[in-house]
């Protein structure tokens, strides 16, 4: 398999070299500053969705578990974890032009009641939806003045994290 080059908008370049079936090295460089660093990684597939990456840093060896699910990666290591969200990026890019961000569920939950109707104009702070999640009732409020364009859910729905509840239109 061949080596690959990734160039970012900033002009930085990542050169990914295949050293073996599960070993690669990544060298980062930019026109301005030259080579920044070079890391070599070993990849170990643990399951369909989880890969463990081993790498050296100075004299220490480290490992990171990378779990892949739709649109996001969860990186874990001894003592910590972070989430990297790809969909958030693409969505932000798509929603330029002043469109209001839709109301999304940030954790799995059940809709108890919807307090508004399509076509309503709501003010910042107005109650929109009551969602039960992790044994608590959560009152979701409008963050800005807007018109309710569409309500995507109804009372009783059990929803996954990330589900869009309400989309808005700007109020002239």
């Amino acid at each position: 398999m061949s080596d690959k080059n990734y160039t970012l908008a900033s002009g930085e370049t990542f050169l990914v070299k295949r050293l073996g079936e599960n070993q690669s090295s990544v060298t980062k460089s930019s026109e301005k500053l030259g080579q920044h660093f070079s890391h070599s990684f070993e990849k170990e597939k643990l399951s369909d969705k989880t890969t463990r990456i081993h790498f050296e840093h100075g004299k220490s060896r480290n490992a990171i578990w990378v779990y892949r699910s739709k649109g996001k990666r969860i990186l874990s290591w001894p003592g910590g974890s972070i989430e990297l969200d790809a969909s958030d990026y693409s969505e932000n890019a798509a929603s330029g032009g002043g469109a209001l961000k839709p109301l999304k569920l940030t954790m799995p939950g059940k809709v108890l009641s919807v307090k508004v109707a399509e076509g309503d104009t709501v003010d910042a702070g107005q109650a929109l939806v009551i969602v039960e999640a992790m044994k608590m009732e959560n009152l979701l409020l409008a963050t800005a003045k807007a018109k309710i364009a569409k309500i995507h859910v109804s009372a009783g729905d059990r929803l996954e994290s990330g589900t869009i509840l309400i989309s808005f239109e700007a109020v002239p």
Binding site: K4, V16, H39, K43, T51, V66, R68, R73, P78, S90
Partner: peptide, 28 residues
């Protein structure tokens, strides 16, 4: 993560992953 000193290094690691996964991620 420990041993990853900068955002760039993290990106490098992810680019390695993206390179070996088929997918849409490369874009992001």
């Amino acid at each position: 993560p420990p041993g990853i000193e900068s955002e760039e290094a993290l990106r490098a690691m992810l680019s390695l992953l993206a390179e070996t996964e088929s997918n849409t991620l490369t874009q992001g």
